[in-house]
Amino acid sequence: MINQETVKNIADLARLHLETAELQRLTKELENILDYVKKLEKLDVSQTQPTTHVLSLKNVFREDRVQPSLGRDLALKTAVAKHDSSFKVPQVIE
């Protein structure tokens, strides 16, 4: 029900580079897990609403006012690479 090509596609969507051996192993493992997941098909849920919030939460609003937040220097402190006041990344547009 799930083949290596599908798994490769999913890995691309998830931005995961997988080696061939890993791809093969994951295909087999996902096949087993999805086989188990089939269990869900036994239930009739045609009349059931999906759970969005498990407890009745109302929309949470607050006033839109400026408040102190993490300063730029502090936010950049954890950066792998930075340039002036920005995060630095490899080339985006070829």
Partner: peptide, 25 residues
């Protein structure tokens, strides 16, 4: 991988949405 699969187009209804419905039960 499992999570991306169950959220991806074509599988969402059968997996994630169905899962959330069973959660209601």
């Amino acid at each position: 991988m499992l999570g991306t699969y169950s959220l991806s187009s074509g599988y969402y209804d059968a997996y994630y949405l169905r899962g959330q419905k069973v959660r209601t039960l």
